[in-house]
Write a protein that binds this DNA or RNA. Structure first.
Lengths: 154, 154
DNA sequence: TATTGTTATACTCTATAACTATA
DNA sequence: TATAGTTATAGAGTATAACAATA
């Protein structure tokens, strides 16, 4: 074997010489893969995934988003949002409500059950996120979130 | 419509009040989605995608990885690596070479055509990455890469 | 005519199990 | 018995086009 790999992250000292370790898109992809895996794992017992948690969480803020709004914000196709809302509505976590000012559009609002589950899910995600970024100091974590937020909303 | 959205990133001032804008996993997912889209777009004319570029780039470093090594590093299933190497080999960008010390294993090495394309692809990705992170200063960009590297290799 | 939600569909990505050849 | 690569297959995720209702 050309490369000796140890542990779940392999032999970092070998790979850190690779050109990819300076590649922002690669680093994002790899860290995101780990993040989704840890998120899905943490949310499993609640019957949610990273994706459905994001929708539920957004709906539970007081933004009253339409399905279109959710699609744009979460970088999803509108048809995917249909499926996600179907799921959450089937579990009585959210409800579709026609927008009085535009009857084509449907506003998504949370149920009390949805609010409750969201609170639990938020805690589960916080723990998973803490675990994921345990190699960073609290300040570094804040800094990382701030930089990503700038990229996300620029 | 409950939320007014303008431009490709929507109305940031509205969404930045949402709970998700503090959620590391969400921020990673969204920025990664933009990164893959811009990467794929930049690589399209070269017949590559973000994924195949990562493999080619790694192979073009002098690490002589086995397919197993690539799978572990890129967080891919070994069967996915088969497909990726098949593609790259079909385009004569890389070659499979049996490992003399373990004939079960195959080392992947670049062709000169592979090296050439990798150089072009590297430039394309650099431009796309620059574009993606144009809202950050050079120092912030370095800082972001450093933080992500810590997470990726911790 | 354009847009929202919806459905259907196909395409990509990812995960699993089984097979072969080696160790 | 265990591991690397391979194959087949199914499941999840994503993208596209078309349709009904509404603007």
């Amino acid at each position: 074997m050309a490369l000796k790999l140890n542990g779940e992250n392999g032999d970092a000292s070998q790979w850190q010489n690779s050109s990819m370790s300076n590649d922002l898109s690669f680093l994002l992809a790899r860290v995101n893969a780990d993040s989704i895996a840890s998120g899905n794992s943490a949310l499993k017992r609640l019957g949610l995934k990273a994706r459905s948690y994001a929708v539920l969480s957004l709906v539970c803020d007081d933004l009253q988003p339409s399905q279109r709004d959710l699609a744009e914000f979460l970088r999803l196709d509108p048809s995917q949002v249909v499926t996600l809302i179907d799921e959450l509505e089937g579990k009585q976590l959210v409800m579709r409500q026609p927008d009085p000012s535009d009857r084509r559009s449907k506003i998504v609002i949370p149920t009390s059950k949805g609010h409750t589950l969201r609170t639990e899910a938020e805690a589960a995600i916080a723990t998973a996120s803490q675990q994921l970024s345990k190699s960073l100091t609290a300040e570094q974590r804040k800094n990382l979130a701030s930089l990503l937020r700038t990229l996300a909303f620029s």
